[in-house]
């Protein structure tokens, strides 16, 4: 091989290497741009889905006329101490709390010591095999409140609480339980039409925006009440908190 020939082939190799490097550089730039673009689009889709949901919810929202606290709770009793109870009808610990302290609450209401405000939140929809029992039962409770039977219906729902991760009670059963406490056709229609299901979402959002994350959340005169080690308060602890709030 002559010297000239060797030089030419070396030059050719260098040009090829430069071309390949140039291609890699171009590919890297454009794929990076594509990645950033994809992520921005994904973020915008997420934001769009959220805004769309918020506006659909706003248009579908029916607030029960009897609801208090910005339309997110049902008040029982007329006592001076306000007690807020955030409960999910699917939540076993809420059931436990109702079993332990339900009678005490009923007595305190009857003695005009407290006003109990029930907030039927729906945070356990995942625990009913896709039937959204938490939302459906909260919506049904709102329909019961419109029919003037909230506390009665609240009781039968806990007495008949389905197991977590079961299908929950179906609408027919929810209506049957309503009939058992004296609710009529308007109630049945509201359950079947899911009239208050969107409202249950609003109650849940209000609950979250107040910084609460678990059920039951029990708030006596604006102060969250917990038992020892973050457990649910006993009936005695509950009474004591009410007495303390009266001052």
């Amino acid at each position: 091989m002559s010297k000239g020939k060797r030089d030419r082939s070396a030059a050719k190799r260098i040009v090829e290497q430069q071309k390949a490097a140039e291609r890699r550089r171009r590919v890297t730039i454009w794929t990076s741009v594509a990645v950033v673009g994809v992520l921005v689009i994904a973020g915008l889709i997420g934001f769009g889905v959220l805004s769309k949901k918020d506006s659909t919810d706003a248009s579908k929202l029916t607030t029960p006329t009897v609801a208090v606290d910005d339309g997110t709770a049902f008040a029982v009793g007329t006592g001076p101490v306000t007690v807020d109870l955030y409960e999910d009808f699917m939540c076993p610990i809420c059931h436990e709390f109702e079993t332990q302290a339900g009678d005490t609450i009923t007595t305190l209401i009857a003695d005009k010591k407290i006003t109990a405000r029930y907030h039927p939140v729906a945070i356990l929809d995942r625990a009913s095999n896709g039937t959204n029992y938490s939302t459906r039962s909260a919506g049904a409770a709102a329909a019961a409140a419109e029919g003037g039977k909230f506390i009665e219906y609240h009781k039968v729902l806990y007495d008949n609480q389905p197991e977590e991760n079961s299908d929950g009670l179906d609408n027919a059963k929810l209506i049957e339980l309503g009939k058992s406490v004296g609710l009529g056709d308007a109630f049945a229609t509201a359950v079947n039409d899911k009239t208050y299901d969107t409202w249950a979402g609003k109650v849940t959002d209000t609950f979250s925006s107040r910084g609460y994350t678990g059920t039951p959340t029990i708030v006596v005169a604006g102060k969250q009440l917990q038992g020892s080690n973050g457990s649910i308060p006993t009936a005695e602890q509950f009474s004591a908190a009410v007495t303390a709030a009266v001052g």
Partner: peptide, 9 residues
Amino acid sequence: AIQPFLEIA
């Protein structure tokens, strides 16, 4: 709302 879409992306 954004996080799951980002994760999937």
